[in-house]
Write a protein that binds this DNA or RNA. Sequence first.
RNA 1: UGGGGCGUCGUCAAGCGGUUAAGACACAGGUUUUUGAUGCCUGCAUUCGGAGGUUCGAAUCCUCCCGCCCCAGCCA
Length: 554
Amino acid sequence: MSEVDSPSNFIQNKIDEDLKSEKFTVHTRFPPEPNGHLHIGHAKSICLNFGLAVKYSGTCNLRFDDTNPSKEETKYVKAIQEDVKWLGFDWGDNMFFASDYFDQLCEFAVQLIQKGKAYVDDLNPEQMREYRGTLSEPGKDSPYRNRTVEENLELFQKMKAGEFAEGEKVLRAKIDMSSSNLNMRDPVLYRILKATHHRVGDKWCIYPMYDFTHGQSDSIEKITHSLCTLEFEDHRPLYDWFLDELEIYHPQQIEFARLNLNYTILSKRKLLQLVEEGHVDDWDDPRMPTLSGMRRRGYPPEAIREFCERVGISKSNSIVDFALLEHCVREDLNRTSTRVMAVLRPLKVVLLNYPENQVEEMDAVNNPEDPDAGTRKMPFSRVVYIEQDDFMEDPPKKFFRLGPGREVRLKHAYVIKCEEVVKNEAGEVVELRCTYDPDTRSGSTQDGRKIKGTLHWVSADHAHKAEVRLYNHLFTHENPADEKVCPELTSSLNPDSLEVIKEALLEPYLKNAKGRFQFLRLGYFCVDSNTSSTTPVFNRVVTLRDTWAKMVKK
RNA sequence: UGGGGCGUCGUCAAGCGGUUAAGACACAGGUUUUUGAUGCCUGCAUUCGGAGGUUCGAAUCCUCCCGCCCCAGCCA
């Protein structure tokens, strides 16, 4: 990890400052609720928290914030662990659950009652809303606010013992119903929930709220810096209030801006909508911004970490350009992936002067960025396929691919010249008849003539078929998350986010391949998780940069 | 219009009273190239939301104004 040159940010500055006045070991935590899958936004938090632990030789805990049994499931804790590991982080023995602390939390609640700082309230949710007041008007005290300590203790025990129905009573902190901060208007500490918890089963029928759990969990785990997103700024006074009233170790909460990406949504609710309405296959659909989706898409974890590093940490709401993520992916893949040849939309080319039944083994460089990657053999024969886009009957200027009478180089093979164009009844070009120049084996001319265009190809007799899936942004709108400009999520869905090519042709090297490759001149591709030997499936991770396509657009 | 935050290049983001206001992505040119890829080179904020003020000196300090985000779950 590049802890040496990681960019400066206000949280690191704060830690550095703290470290000057006091000696301690940095201790952070990543605290997901196991109620859904992790996405690229979580990756930012994971990289921040685990990254700081690495940088300062400290520790980062993985803690599941599982205080709401009605929403949480064990399958999510498994998926979250898998995602964090895949991203490249290790929590060692430091995996915890807020539910580990239910007994302790309950004692904390009793302590507050005994101090006269908490009370059992009988108001129902609607009444509580009325009593809470509004943004501009103070709330008013609940009629149950002044119950005696003894009565509160007894009532709370009965809540815990299951003597009341769900919603009948809650435990509240006694703070200030006229506070300008709504979170301080006697927040609920415990509610009755007769649900089975994914870990502790039916042991409890009262469950602590987030606010009453998070800070105390941080305290118990001796977290030094509790990093969360901006929307919790208003909760910080409450976070501090509990720790102060309880007189326990007091970590500091620091808030930073969550990640937003253009052409993408990161809200759990909307992501769920995409899955449930069938706009995507599942949470790990390669178009999804989930970590499982990106994994399946073929994004290397290193690239995601690099992206998170480059995005930075600040307090301003921002929308990061998706192109930055793609840049990080390309940067990694350019360095690491083997170059192979595959033709997505084949156009038959017959080499008239090439002997029938002759096969030559051409040497192909595996990765020009990595001399150690070596070479491999590629069969070449009389009939090859090239990309349909690489031929134009009436080419515009600056087009230096194939056209009638033109010469072009087949990568790692020969220079060929188009002699004849064969069309079907519909007038579509279905075959090219070419000649090859035997003096240009490996691609260089003997007479010094310059060949500008180089095409990728596969040998007809040796290629094998595969399904290739091309992905584009899921949304056409730059900011589908903005409900003002994009009220209907589905109206911004990109109809072309997935294009399936059923019969692409791959060079033989790719038979039974695994992992990621660069399909020369096309992009980076990876073998999909549901590939099979009968129908191999490849996903396009990301295209190559394409300045020609850009010129054509203009 | 109560409270809490935030406004530095198209997009992120350093900067913390004295810098020609980092860097990255994007964009535009050039160059190398058997990938129109990669690499390399060049350009891209006389100005930091606005207006005043303090100071020899302000993106950095003060005042006022403007804009955007968050908060009225027994969700997290």
